[in-house]
């Protein structure tokens, strides 16, 4: 009998867990970003951002987060390749007319790629200037010198093209999560016919809350 990670359900379990882990990251990320909306010229946000740059977080948690992303993406690629193989070489000429199937559930790969593409832009916009080249401006708050992340964000999102890109990214994320959220619970076995409805509702609300949260920030920054 195969190993746990060699089995379809084992791999799916890791996929679901890594997804849930990334969902937790999203909650933290959005919480920090919501500081952008505090009307104090970016002070709160800069302090929060600086907190996230503490060595413990930077060297302790960031690699874990990166690993979460890598596992989630690599497994997705592997599972998708297997699934395509299992579908066979002959495709249905009459397409697929099955009703009542959520669009997102059938397009998690595409949505994942949208989110990934957004991630690349996002890393280029912030991670590189803040943590690699340190080209971002500095600011001193309460005697501590730190990157002026607020100005960086503001400058970035006041470019309408970027703002639209960010909104697209957030919408892709919402769709990805509307299926991903309840699906993760189904995959790890924490589901039944009663909880299925609950998870779907919670998942949908959560997905749009996260996504709209990010969108609100983008629009606020664009208009500020």
């Amino acid at each position: 009998m195969g190993t746990f990670f060699g089995s379809s359900i084992g791999r799916k379990f890791v996929m679901g867990l890594s997804g849930l882990f990334l969902i937790i990251f999203l909650i933290v990320h959005l919480s920090v970003n919501l500081c952008l909306l505090v009307p104090d010229g970016g002070e709160t946000f800069n302090i929060a951002a600086n907190f996230m740059a503490l060595p413990l977080i930077k060297f302790g948690l960031q690699p874990v987060l990166a690993l979460g992303f890598i596992i989630h993406i690599a497994l997705a690629a592997q599972l998708t390749a297997q699934n395509n193989k299992a579908r066979g070489n002959n495709k249905y000429a009459s397409g697929n007319n099955t009703k009542e199937v959520m669009w997102a559930s059938k397009n998690m790969g595409i949505l994942g790629i949208v989110v990934l593409a957004f991630l690349v832009v996002h890393v280029y916009d912030y991670f590189v200037p803040l943590q690699i080249t340190h080209s971002a401006q500095e600011v001193t708050i309460n005697g501590t010198t730190m990157h002026d992340t607020y100005s960086l964000v503001k400058a970035n999102l006041q470019n309408p093209v970027k703002a639209i890109l960010y909104i697209i990214g957030a919408l892709g994320l919402a769709l990805h999560l509307t299926h991903g959220f309840w699906s993760a619970f189904q995959t790890v076995g924490l589901n039944n016919s009663i909880w299925r409805k609950r998870w779907t509702v919670i998942g949908t609300i959560f997905a749009w809350a996260i996504s709209l949260g990010f969108c609100v920030i983008v629009v606020a920054m664009l208009l500020s």
Partner: peptide
């Protein structure tokens, strides 16, 4: 036997 992985589409 080469069956694919479930992605919970519900089809």
């Amino acid at each position: 036997l080469g069956f694919g992985n479930c992605t919970n589409t519900g089809a």
